[in-house]
Write a protein that binds this DNA or RNA. Sequence first.
DNA 1: AAAAAATCTGCAACTCAGTTGCAAATTCTG
DNA 2: CAGAATTTGCAACTGAGTTGCAGATTTTTT
Lengths: 140, 140
Amino acid sequence: MTSPLRDRARQMLKDAGLYCTEPRLAILQVLMQAARPLRQDQIGEKLTLRALNKVTVYRTLESLIEVGLVHRAFTYRRAGYFELADHCTEHQCHPHFTCTQCGVTHCLTDILLPLAKIAQKGFVINRQQVRLEGLCPACA
Amino acid sequence: MTSPLRDRARQMLKDAGLYCTEPRLAILQVLMQAARPLRQDQIGEKLTLRALNKVTVYRTLESLIEVGLVHRAFTYRRAGYFELADHCTEHQCHPHFTCTQCGVTHCLTDILLPLAKIAQKGFVINRQQVRLEGLCPACA
DNA sequence: AAAAAATCTGCAACTCAGTTGCAAATTCTG
DNA sequence: CAGAATTTGCAACTGAGTTGCAGATTTTTT
């Protein structure tokens, strides 16, 4: 029960200082083969060897995130926050910067993405959102 | 019970072709005065005239989104999706493009934001995520 | 301005993602 | 291999967001 993929996963866990357990190996392998961000339940479905309790999946993901092997990805649905579309054009919204200290959101209007470059490659953009988090000048 | 803010809200609803109701006026006004994206419960708390059922708040936000007056904003927590951090440096993750048709996520490595420009203004960036949605070349 | 039509609101009950406490199982260390 | 440290699974829970439906409100029609 070994494979190059599995060995790489094992090494990643070792390097990160995490216990090398079956659930972690399995989940890491699923993510390494994924072509897109996956939800907890989608990860569960892709597990071949044995089913894992969803609590385990969530906790495993949490540890993998903690050591920097995995991160969370956004989607428009289930975003949880709402704001006026005020400063946004049809397909593009000004990049936002949210200060993790004071919570205020700044609109960085001059840091727009070079959309033309993307369109040039044949991508049709229907929704764009850029989000930055950190400390604003006042809190830094 | 009228004010410039309220009048603007009223006009926005009218222009959008929505019934001009008390809950919609109230919620729109809250969002117009907000310095940051708000959750449903935070919006509820800021309502001064009268309390609104959370179902009403959610449905109102949904209609406002439908007509383009409001949009959803991301946060790292509660993102719901997970992916390997593989291609990401410490504070910066490659811009992602997700095709709404086939669901595949592409990494657009050469469309990075000019981070230096932002740092120059005194912002400290701890987390950055750029997400694009639309049609990929194969699906367009 | 009243009545009819269209739409919206609130309630109660529900679904579904994600969390918590704890005992049993697994992994690492010496 | 034994003991210590950590992880896993279960069951039960929390909290965001949804649904059906009856009653209320807004707009349109006359």
